[in-house]
Nucleic acid binder design. Structure first.
Lengths: 334, 334
DNA sequence: GTGAAAGCGCTAACAA
DNA sequence: TTGTTAGCGCTTTCAC
C-alpha cells in the first residue's frame, strides 16, 4: 500500500501538500494539484481512514441499529438510510439487534468506539435508558419512540393508519374486530391500539378485552393468538382481524388455514405493512402501507443536518403518512 | 471522553500498562490489572478504535457485500455472517450493491480504506476483474462464483436442487416444463439451468428453447417472461414452471392471476428459496430450499480461518445442500 | 502556495 | 512486571 509519503516523494512535494491537494483542493495551486492527483491515482493511493481519523478525532460513520433485518420493512428502511448517507460521503455501520437488549448494548458500545458521528436507532424496550448515557451524540429514532426526549424521531402515522383500517372493517359491517399487536410496550403497538380503540369508540361498538392480544411481532405469537381468538364462543368471536405486522400476518394465515377458515369469507383480515407478497396472496391482502424507504431517507437527512451544524437543532418529531390499500382479504361479515 | 492517559494517571501507572491491562491481561500483575480495570470502568473509558488501528496497521472489520438486502435470503445470510463475526470480535461492514457495478466498486474502495481484514462477497457480473486487484486480501464468495480462481467459495448445490425440482415435475407427468432463470451470466443461474437440462435429458424429454427464459431476478422480469411462456400455442405451452428465486415467483404469480390461470390446477410451480410466506400461499408453494444462515456462517468461518492464520489456505469450495419441499403448487398436468 | 514540525490516542520494542 | 521512547499515517498549525 502506497502512503502519503510515497506520493509526496514522487511528486517532489511535502506530505502536507499532498494531504491538502486531496482534502482541501483550493489550498493548492492548480498545477501542483493536478500533478499530485495524477501520481496518487497512478500509485493507487488510498488514504487510510484510521490514520486520518485518529488525527481528526472524528469518523465519517454513523450507526444504524434495527431490530430485524430479515423483515423487508427494515431492510428497505436501511436502504433509504444508505442512500442519503452515501450522498454525504458517510459510512453506515449496520447492526441487527433482534430486540435483544444485550446485543443493543454491545453494538452501541462498538459503534461508540468507532467515534460515530450520529446514531439512527429503531428502539426496543430499554433503549431509552441507554440513550440517556450518550450525551450529545446526534440521534434519531425510527419507527418507534423510546420515550427518551431530546432526540429526533421519524415515525409513521400509526393512529391514523389503524383508524383507517378499523373504519374500513366497520364500514363493511363488522362489529367484533380483533386486534393482534406486536410488543405491548412498544410505542408503535400502543399507537395502533389507540387507533383501534378510537375507531371502535367512535362507531359506538362494544370493545371486548378478549379481542385485544399481542403476538410480539412473531409469526408463532400471532398464530397462537389467532387460534385463541377463533376459539371464542361463536357469538363473541371476531369476524375480522387487524394484524400489526407482516410476519405476524403469516402466523395468522397459518392458524386460519389449519382451522379451515377462509380469509374474507369467514374472517376479514387487514395487515400493517405491504410486503411484495401481500398482493399475490389468495385473496390479496388488504393492508395499511407505510414508506420504509422514505422513513430511512428522512431520518438520515435529519441526522446529517444535526451532524453538520455544530449546534443541535431542537429535536424534530416527524410523522410519515400511512394509507389503506383495499384488496381482497376484507369483505362483509356473513 | 476519557483517554488512556486519564486512566493511567488515575491508576498511578504508565499508559502502556493500561494498554496491556486491557488487551494483554496476562502481561500485567493481577493486582495492577484489577485496579486499572476498575478505574477504566469507572471513568467509562473506551479505547478509540481509530487510534489503536492506526498504530496496529490493521482493523477488526470485514466487509460483506450483498446484491440485495431486501431479499430475505440475503438478509438471513447476513445474519449468519454476523453471528460468526461477532464470536470473533469482528465488525462487519455491510454493503448493498444492488447488482450495480459502480456501487460495488465504490463500496469495495471504501472498505479497503478501512483496512478490512477480509472480504465476503456475493458476486455480480464484473466482480471477477475487481477481485483480481485485491491482491492477497482473504476473500470468500457466497451464493455465486465470479469465475475468479484463488478465493474461497460457499455455494448451494444448485444443480442437484434443480434436478430434484425438475424430476418431481416429470414424475407428476409433466413433459413441457418452463425454466425462468435469474441473470443468465451468473453462475447460480447457469448451474440451475444445467440441472434442468440434465433432468430433462435423462427423462428423454424434448427441450424447446422457447421454454427457457430469464427474469433477471426481478419480479417484473418474471412477470413478463411468464406471460410470454403462457402465450405459446396450447400444444407447446409449458404445463409447469421452475422459477429461480422468490422475488420472481411473485411476478410469476401475478402474471398467472391476471391470465386467470390456477396454480397447480392449470400450471404447476416450483420455486427456489423458501421465504416465510411460501407456506401460506394458496396453494402453498413447492420449493427448493437452501440454508442462507448456514451459508453466511460457513463463509464467515472460512474467512476467519484465513484471516487468523498468517498463511493463506488453499481456497475451499464448499457446496451446501438444497432440498425439495413438496407442497401444494405442483400437481399432475390436466 | 508550500514545507517543517508537532501531535491525534494508542501500542510495541526495548530497557530496567 | 513495568516505564520509557518511538512511532502508525495522516492532518494541521505556524512559519515563510
Amino acid at each position: 500500500m502506497a502512503t502519503i509519503e510515497d506520493v509526496a516523494r514522487e511528486a517532489g512535494v511535502s506530505p502536507s501538500t499532498v494531504s491538502r491537494a486531496l482534502s482541501r483542493p483550493d489550498m493548492v495551486s492548480q498545477e501542483t494539484r493536478d500533478r499530485i492527483l495524477a501520481i496518487a491515482h497512478q500509485l493507487g493511493y488510498q488514504a487510510i481512514q484510521q490514520a486520518r481519523q485518529a488525527r481528526q478525532q472524528a469518523s465519517t460513520s454513523i450507526a444504524l441499529l434495527v431490530t430485524d433485518l430479515e423483515n423487508p420493512f427494515f431492510a428497505t428502511l436501511a436502504k433509504g438510510v444508505q442512500a442519503v448517507a452515501d450522498q454525504h460521503g458517510c459510512n453506515v455501520l449496520l447492526y441487527n439487534t433482534e430486540e435483544d437488549e444485550i446485543k443493543e448494548d454491545r453494538y452501541l458500545k462498538l459503534a461508540l468506539q468507532q467515534k460515530i458521528q450520529g446514531l439512527l436507532i429503531v428502539p426496543t424496550r430499554g433503549t431509552a435508558s441507554r440513550l440517556k448515557e450518550l450525551d450529545d451524540l446526534p440521534t434519531v429514532e425510527l419507527d418507534c419512540a423510546s420515550g427518551y426526549a431530546g432526540v429526533g424521531q421519524v415515525l409513521a402515522e400509526n393512529v391514523r393508519g389503524t383508524v383507517l383500517a378499523t373504519d374500513h372493517l366497520i364500514q363493511l359491517g363488522h362489529k367484533r374486530i380483533g386486534f393482534i399487536g406486536g410488543h405491548p410496550e412498544v410505542s408503535s403497538t400502543r399507537e395502533r391500539l389507540e387507533g383501534y380503540n378510537q375507531a371502535m369508540a367512535l362507531a359506538g361498538l362494544v370493545r371486548d378485552p378478549r379481542w385485544v392480544d399481542y403476538g410480539y411481532g412473531l409469526e408463532s405469537g400471532a398464530e397462537e393468538v389467532t387460534r385463541k381468538l377463533m376459539s371464542l364462543p361463536p357469538q363473541d368471536r371476531p369476524t375480522a382481524l387487524f394484524v400489526s405486522n407482516a410476519d405476524m400476518m403469516i402466523g395468522t394465515l397459518t392458524a386460519l388455514r389449519s382451522l379451515g377458515l377462509q380469509v374474507a369469507q369467514d374472517v376479514s383480515l387487514v395487515g400493517f405493512d405491504d410486503p411484495p407478497w401481500a398482493k399475490v396472496m389468495q385473496p390479496p391482502l388488504t393492508v395499511v402501507a407505510q414508506s420504509p424507504f422514505e422513513m430511512g431517507r428522512v431520518a438520515c437527512g435529519i441526522l446529517m443536518q444535526n451532524v453538520q451544524r455544530e449546534f443541535v437543532l431542537p429535536p424534530l418529531n416527524i410523522r410519515l403518512p400511512t394509507h389503506l390499500i383495499v384488496r381482497g382479504s376484507t369483505a362483509r361479515p356473513r
